[in-house]
Design a protein around this nucleic acid. Sequence first.
DNA 1: ACGTGCTCCTGTGTGC
DNA 2: TGCACACAGGAGCACG
Length: 263
Amino acid sequence: MPELPEVEIVRRYLEERALGKRIDSVKVIDASILEGVTTRKLIDSLVGKCFTAARRHGKQLFLQVDGGFLTAHLGMTGDLISIESESPLPRFARVVVGFQGGERLVFEDVRKFGAVGFVKSTSSLLANKRLGPDVLLVREKEFVERVRRHRKAIKIVLLDQRVVAGIGNLYADEALFQSGVHPNASASKLTDGEIEKLCRNVRRVLKRSIQVRTDFDRLPRTYLLRSRIEGGRCPRGHSSLKSIKVGGRTTIFCPRCQRPSKG
DNA sequence: ACGTGCTCCTGTGTGC
DNA sequence: TGCACACAGGAGCACG
């Protein structure tokens, strides 16, 4: 589930629920979820400290403490939730941070594609993963320059977190639809105007989704996400939606609104 | 550089 | 109802 909007909602939730409380325990239930850190190191880095800030870069989360940052990536099924001391742990709890007073912050993840780690600086993790600039912060000009370097299908380029960090499968489809760009169009063959439009649309779509707390039923009727299934009706009424695979990912688009380029 | 396909893992939905 | 199978919104990797 987690795409950038979900991650941003989690970040805000963490700001309310996880900051300023003294950490008095860390339990790693499944160490395979750890990335670049041992259980010992995680415990030593966190216990006795407080989270002081919650940050996000693309879909990557950071919880700041004195001396570094707890990192969390939610993968496809990950979540971070705060529970009361008496509450039972969720079934798929992988890492549990206990606060003074009994409240606990739980990283849960059914499929274990997510990851928890610890870094001294956010920039070291961004460099390690070679993440591009955050999609909501990058300048439009830089977005255009970074995207048009690639010759691959535009959708693959949008999903490449090294180009720009934060665009997931659903929002790539939405932005392409709203921009009238075919998902298989070569990125380098798009005009600057088309890429600028993609940049503006992907941002608008992500922000709108954050606003409605990712409840797609509350999105405007013009959004593809409201009927993103094969055979669904194009919001502009032009055609029924088609499903293809691009880079192995399910891709829904409107064959009339998003014509392949003739070149 | 590019596309393809596999991998990590488990739950859910579909069709027989 | 049971069962097999396809599929899932992420991301890294090997291969040709």
